[in-house]
Amino acid sequence: MTATTANGLAADLAGPGLTLVTGPFRSRIRARLATVAAGLASLYPPDAFEPATGFADFHVALDRPVGARRWYRPQVRFRFDGREVFRPLPRPQAYPMLEWGLNWCVTTQINHYLLFHAAVLARAGRALILPGEPGVGKSTLCAALASRGWELLSDEIALVALDTGHLHGLGRPVSLKNAAIDVIRRFAPDAVIGATCHDTLKGTVAHLRAPRRGALQAADAACPTWLVFPRFIPGAPTRLQTETRERGFFRLVDNAFNFTTLGTLAFERTTDLVNRSTCLDLTYSDLEEAVGRLGSLRAVD
């Protein structure tokens, strides 16, 4: 590896590639795009990068398509194991495409963890799991909690170990969309937010660098303790109410990526997770209040 500056990363990405270590996964990345190097340099800690040697879970590349789209309305394409798995996107979206692509790698290739569409944070080794489909406000809430002392494990994909049932960290930036970008800028003025990218399929997006502590400890695991289903509703008062475990189970399974693939093992691990957690339903519009309510949660042993 040359260095972990944007220029150094750009040289490695354009040459032999580099290994991005995020939680338990190693991604081998190649790209001849300066915006990708700049994004990686600004959003990951230096110790997330390793030379392009040894085993990697995922081999990905971002490059320019051949033909007219190399120059006219230039595009970028994402390749996994040499295969183009998405349609090309406008080239300014190269960095978000890398993050989305890495999410795709985890959710489609990994079955040695039980995976849920959920943000996960932790406090003193106890995990707060926030499942939800896109748009419910979980990434915003996740970013806000991470800026107020919670350790960020993941904003998008919960990794549940099949043997222990513990939550493992993914060590990736938080994906912020549209109004949430300025909301977090106001809520956490010291937060490091990468370049803003407009007109994507998800609207305007930007990524929040994981606080250093979370990124460093991403390999640690946390015990499932709170299972909270958040929903942002404009103007709604903050309400944190008990959810039944039965409903909690089905709501969680609705957000599973590989429940069917893992079958009985997934059922046993999910029921165990639900039984070990306090299940709650959160509706909010005031981020400060929501963070305060979640901050006052206590573990029931």
Partner: peptide
Amino acid sequence: WCRVGGSVLAYHGGSGDT
């Protein structure tokens, strides 16, 4: 099957239904 809350959840490994 497993007790969850006040109920029991039963999973059928053949059909994949809970």
